[in-house]
Design a protein around this nucleic acid. Structure first.
Length: 421
RNA sequence: GGCCCCAUCGUCUAGUGGCCUAGGACGGCGGGUUUUCAUCCCGCAAACUCGGGUUCGAUUCCCGAUGGGGUCACCA
């Protein structure tokens, strides 16, 4: 049985890199009918943040990635929090100590490096080798009694019967130490697959301080989890048929480690925007309304939101754009005058005269009437509609103007125009 | 700096010795549709880092250089 895991440490918010690694692990497990474990590596007492663990699980859940075994689910290999496995590490360290493969050093326990060359066949990168001299004696139990990363990881991967370690390439240099530990315990190591790490504009590893790494901000900005997953899947991996838009299940069905690239991709938000826009464009009215409802919360007139759905669908790439594009449906725009053209007064005056007399307030009547106004006054069509657009919305970019006027209703429209003439 | 890894359009990538006058996508630019913006449609520009080999033939294989990344903790 194939068993994989991710091993996030709860030291901050839910990191996009964790999601990326999780996605590959998840797909690999699903594809091979294996099990996906989420193990919490909380052995750093100083950096541990209580809420972080919850954020990680929430982030994964939002993305649609679930797990078979972890702290909150049943599993035969628990506990799944390293801080609850201290006795095990202690026991294993003592074993190494008694076999003279480790020694005490200033309150810590150090592993004796055998100093032989380490080679493994990485499932993504191919053959990787490290000269034995590179690995020095390293600490396995800190003086505070907690295990170090390399020790805890190895013990747990052994105990939890992990068969494939799929992780970011920043761990390549840790692998020789872990391999030495496997050897010391006489256990066959799992397969290793080191995927490239996501890079920022400077081609550096994504940084917590400077880059948008928190999964939560994508939700806040109104991105769909499906689009984010799709985008992540396209980074460092490609669909065998060259497809660009596909869901999680299709990713799983087509996933293989062989198609993972060796070099690190730049996390380019422009493509995410496009993808997200595609997902929005392909939603049904009720689906998009549902999503907007969730995103906008109670502060908006939902009846109005529902009516604007068909008007905004092709115009927004994420839900936060809805607010800037369609905000004028919910509150009166400000600083409208500055945008108006030089003939605005005449345009608006004529429009007002017509609109206030409209009996049947609908798109067709309004459109037809306004075209007549343009014709009789010999207005320039584009300029006329632009002034009208600005008058009702306060902006130059909006959903279709006649539809917008119809939606807002006579009172609001005539009121907004009147103020400007 | 030592060690490890990597190297195709600006970006994400396809490509595993001839099908490549290097394909797709995002972005850019130009045009069409359009009462704004967008959507949609059409088109254009844009890359195999360099130098040696191997081979009848290299983007593809080997070596080197250069460049980039990662890592060198009692962090994970």
């Amino acid at each position: 049985m194939i068993r994989v895991r991710i091993a996030p440490s709860p030291t901050g918010l839910a990191h996009i890199g964790t999601a990326y690694t999780a996605l590959f692990n998840y797909a690999f497990a699903k594809k091979n009918k294996g099990r996906f474990v989420v193990r919490i590596e909380d052995t750093d007492q100083k950096r541990h943040i209580k809420e972080a663990e919850k954020a990680i699980f929430e982030g994964l859940t939002w993305l649609g990635i679930d797990w078979d075994e972890s702290v909150n689910t049943k599993g035969e290999y628990g506990p799944y929090r390293q801080s609850e496995r201290l006795k095990l590490y202690d026991k294993k360290a003592k074993e190494l100590l008694s076999r003279d493969l480790a020694y005490k050093d200033k309150g810590a326990v150090r592993f004796k490096n055998p100093g032989i060359e380490v080679v493994w066949d990485d499932l993504v990168k191919g053959k990787i080798s490290f000269p034995g001299t590179e690995i020095t004696d390293f600490v396995i139990i800190k003086s505070d009694g907690f295990p170090t990363y390399n020790f805890a990881v190895t013990i747990d991967d052994i105990e939890m019967k992990i068969t494939h370690v799929i992780r970011g390439e920043e761990h390549v240099s840790n692998t020789p130490r872990q391999l030495a530990l496997y050897k010391a315990f006489g256990v066959n190591p799992p397969f290793f697959a080191h995927h490239p790490t996501l890079r920022n504009k400077d081609h550096k590893k994504l940084s917590k301080r400077r880059d948008p790494v928190d999964i939560g901000i994508y939700k806040k900005q109104g991105y769909l989890p499906e689009a984010l997953i799709n985008f992540l899947a396209l980074l460092g991996w490609s669909h065998p048929k060259g497809k660009e838009i596909f869901g999680l299940q299709e990713f799983i069905d087509n996933f293989s480690l062989e198609r993972v690239r060796k070099s690190g991709p730049f996390f380019n938000i422009e493509k995410l925007d496009w993808l997200n826009g595609q997902y929005i464009k392909n939603m049904s009215d009720s689906e998009l309304f549902h999503q907007l409802k969730i995103y906008l919360g109670e502060d908006y007139n939902l009846k109005m939101v529902e009516k604007t759905v068909p008007l905004v669908r092709d115009r927004i790439k994420n839900f936060s754009e809805y607010i800037s594009l369609a905000g004028f449906f919910f509150e009166e725009p400000e600083a409208v005058k500055d945008l108006l053209g030089e003939n605005a007064r005449g345009h608006l005056e004529a429009a007002y005269q017509f609109l206030k007399g409209v009996k049947k307030w609908n798109r067709e009547t309004i459109n037809k009437g306004l075209l007549e106004v343009i014709a009789t006054n010999e207005f320039h069509t584009g300029e006329f509609f632009m002034d009208l657009r600005i008058a009702v919305s306060g902006q130059k970019v909006t959903p279709p103007i006649n539809e917008s006027i119809a939606l807002l209703g006579k009172d609001i429209i005539t009121d907004r125009i009147k103020k400007l003439i």
